[in-house]
Computed example of a mutant assay.
Amino acid sequence: MEIQVFILLIFSGITFAAADLSKEKCPSGCVCRKRDVKCYALTDFPVKFPPLTTYIFMDEMNIQTIPPNSFLGLEFLNTIEFQRSNFGSISTCAFKSIQSLEKLIFFKSVIGHLDKFAIFNNTGLSTIEILESKITEVSPFAIATLDNIVSFSLEDTTIYDLNTMSIVNVSGKELTIVGSVFKTVHYMPFVFGRFSQVKILNNTFEMLPCGTIDNLLVAAVDNNPLITGNAIMCDCGISYIHKLQNEKQKDLLNNMYCLDGGVINSQRIVSEALSSALPCDQKNKETLTKCRTQEVKKMPTLVCPSYSHGGVYKSTENKNGNSASSLSSCVTVLILTIFVLLNGSSVRQF
């Protein structure tokens, strides 16, 4: 009888412990149901998510930054979706070590600064969608080394400052850039790998420096990219294009038009008169018409902060492991204890 009471108390303790653990797992301001976490109108990024989370949805967030290692320890996380949110920055290594991540979506969101290696080397990542959003600045190597992309979509988004080599070594099936506006564009912003399908439609490039056209064409494996309806600022900044010799590049420009209402045609492209027709002073002519091949930046070494976001996962792993494993270990120990007690009781009775 005493042992039965003892066992009942033990299992009651396990039940209460599990209930308390369930309460602790869901971040404040979020709703956790099964393996989904949905957060609304937060001003601080959650320090910790349940370890078995597969889907994270965040709506109307107003957060200074998505910190490094924000999703560390989430071995089953499949999809992260942000809607109508405002982020001051997305830090280096924000999405590091989520090898299970397949989909990353930003919809109607504002990002102040996309740091280098913000989205980097996520081997399972197949879908990136940035839709109806605004990004103030994209750093060099912000999105880099992704080679299993099924769909990379940049649609109806405004980017105010796109640095050299902002998007590097990204390859896959489909690249879609549609209806977006690029304000300040630096030399060679895209250094894509190869895509099976390329659609670049109805975008506005207020600057179109050397290297932009080349690398958009390189991304097209099928030699039949759908690149049309794009507008560019026909000023001194494109005075280099009269030197283009590649027929594909010329055809691409034939499908573009000037923001001032002018038309770019093959005759204008190959004509030396182009540069004199543009409002360039002599210094700019000499610099821009050379269109010198600039040295491609070397991929820097990734250095992530040694700490985990909030310090929670690191201390938890070092001391107790994650919550699920801690509970499992606790249950195992208690079961073994019960087994020993039962055996001991039967021996004494015998």
Rank of each mutant, 00 (worst) to 15 (best):
N284V: 09
L244T: 03
S276C: 03
M256Y: 10
Q249H: 09
C280W: 11
G261S: 13
L252V: 02
Q245K: 12
T289P: 00
P300F: 07
K243R: 05
G229S: 08
D260K: 13
Q267N: 06
S271F: 02
K290N: 05
E272S: 03
E286N: 00
L278Q: 00
T301N: 09
E247V: 13
D260H: 09
C304E: 15
C234T: 03
V270D: 07
L288F: 04
Q249F: 08
Y257H: 14
Q245S: 15
Q267F: 03
Q267C: 02
E272P: 00
Y240R: 02
C304H: 05
V303M: 14
A273V: 08
H242S: 03
S275P: 09
E247F: 04
Y307V: 08
N265W: 09
M256G: 07
T301A: 12
C236D: 00
K298V: 10
C236S: 02
Y240I: 01
S239K: 08
C234E: 06
G229D: 10
V303E: 07
E286V: 00
L244E: 06
D281A: 03
K283D: 12
M299Y: 09
C258F: 14
A277S: 10
N255F: 14
L274K: 00
G229Y: 07
T228A: 13
N230E: 13
L278Y: 01
P279W: 11
C280K: 15
T289D: 04
G262Y: 00
N254V: 09
G262F: 04
S266Q: 07
T287S: 06
D251C: 08
K248V: 08
V263A: 11
C234K: 13
A231K: 15
C258M: 12
E272H: 01
K290E: 04
I238P: 01
K283I: 12
Q282R: 03
I238Y: 04
R268D: 02
E247D: 07
R292P: 04
I264Q: 05
A273E: 10
Q294F: 14
E295L: 11
L278K: 01
Y240T: 01
K290F: 03
S276H: 06
D235P: 01
L288S: 01
L302Y: 03
P305A: 08
I269W: 00
P300R: 06
T228R: 11
N265D: 15
Y240N: 00
N254Q: 10
D260V: 04
C291V: 14
E295H: 14
M233H: 13
Y240H: 05
T228G: 05
E247M: 09
L288K: 00
D251M: 15
G229F: 12
V270A: 15
Q245L: 07
A231W: 04
S239G: 15
T293I: 15
Q249V: 09
D235C: 02
T287P: 01
C236G: 02
L252M: 11
M299I: 11
L302E: 11
I264Y: 05
K297F: 14
I238M: 06
D251R: 11
V270E: 09
Y257F: 12
A277C: 02
E286P: 01
K283P: 03
S275C: 10
S276L: 02
Q294A: 10
L274N: 00
E247C: 04
L259H: 13
I232A: 08
Q294N: 14
K285F: 06
L244D: 01
N230I: 10
S275A: 13
N246V: 04
L278T: 02
A277F: 05
T301E: 12
N246D: 12
T301C: 06
D260T: 13
S239H: 12
Q249D: 11
T228L: 07
A231P: 02
